[in-house]
Computed example of a mutant assay.
Amino acid sequence: MIDFQNGSLFKLSQCNPADVAPLIEPIFVEGEQIMVAAKALRDYVVFTNKRILAVNVQGMTGKKRDLTSLPYSKIQSWSVETAGTFDLDAELEIWFSGLGKVRLEFKGRFDVTYLNRLISSFVL
Score class of each variant (00 low, 15 high):
residue 2 I to R: 12
residue 5 Q to L: 11
residue 5 Q to W: 10
residue 8 S to T: 13
residue 9 L to F: 12
residue 9 L to T: 09
residue 11 K to Y: 10
residue 12 L to I: 03
residue 12 L to A: 05
residue 14 Q to I: 08
residue 14 Q to R: 13
residue 14 Q to H: 07
residue 14 Q to T: 11
residue 15 C to H: 01
residue 16 N to G: 02
residue 16 N to C: 04
residue 17 P to I: 00
residue 17 P to V: 01
residue 17 P to F: 00
residue 17 P to N: 02
residue 18 A to K: 13
residue 18 A to T: 06
residue 21 A to S: 03
residue 24 I to M: 01
residue 25 E to C: 01
residue 26 P to D: 00
residue 27 I to E: 05
residue 27 I to D: 05
residue 29 V to D: 09
residue 29 V to M: 04
residue 30 E to P: 01
residue 30 E to Q: 10
residue 31 G to D: 15
residue 33 Q to W: 00
residue 33 Q to R: 14
residue 34 I to M: 01
residue 35 M to F: 01
residue 36 V to A: 05
residue 37 A to Y: 00
residue 38 A to M: 06
residue 39 K to M: 07
residue 39 K to L: 02
residue 39 K to P: 01
residue 40 A to P: 03
residue 40 A to T: 10
residue 41 L to T: 14
residue 44 Y to W: 12
residue 44 Y to R: 04
residue 46 V to K: 02
residue 46 V to M: 03
residue 47 F to E: 05
residue 51 R to L: 02
residue 52 I to M: 13
residue 53 L to G: 03
residue 54 A to Q: 09
residue 54 A to T: 07
residue 54 A to W: 09
residue 55 V to T: 08
residue 55 V to D: 01
residue 55 V to L: 02
residue 55 V to H: 04
residue 56 N to R: 11
residue 58 Q to P: 03
residue 60 M to A: 13
residue 60 M to R: 14
residue 61 T to M: 14
residue 64 K to H: 12
residue 65 R to Q: 15
residue 67 L to A: 07
residue 67 L to F: 13
residue 67 L to W: 12
residue 67 L to Q: 09
residue 67 L to T: 14
residue 68 T to W: 06
residue 68 T to F: 08
residue 69 S to H: 10
residue 69 S to F: 11
residue 70 L to T: 06
residue 70 L to Y: 12
residue 70 L to F: 12
residue 71 P to Y: 07
residue 72 Y to S: 07
residue 72 Y to H: 06
residue 73 S to Y: 03
residue 73 S to H: 10
residue 74 K to C: 09
residue 74 K to A: 15
residue 76 Q to C: 08
residue 79 S to P: 00
residue 80 V to R: 09
residue 81 E to A: 10
residue 82 T to P: 00
residue 83 A to H: 12
residue 85 T to M: 15
residue 85 T to A: 13
residue 88 L to T: 13
residue 89 D to Y: 12
residue 89 D to W: 08
residue 90 A to D: 02
residue 90 A to I: 05
residue 91 E to W: 10
residue 92 L to G: 06
residue 92 L to C: 10
residue 95 W to L: 15
residue 98 G to Q: 12
residue 98 G to L: 08
residue 98 G to M: 11
residue 99 L to G: 04
residue 102 V to Q: 10
residue 103 R to W: 04
residue 104 L to C: 04
residue 105 E to R: 15
residue 106 F to H: 07
residue 106 F to W: 05
residue 106 F to V: 07
residue 107 K to N: 13
residue 109 R to M: 08
residue 111 D to H: 11
residue 112 V to P: 03
residue 112 V to A: 03
residue 113 T to S: 09
residue 115 L to H: 05
residue 116 N to L: 03
residue 117 R to Y: 03
residue 117 R to V: 02
residue 117 R to G: 02
residue 117 R to Q: 12
residue 117 R to L: 07
residue 119 I to E: 01
residue 119 I to P: 08
residue 120 S to I: 00
residue 122 F to W: 05
residue 122 F to S: 05
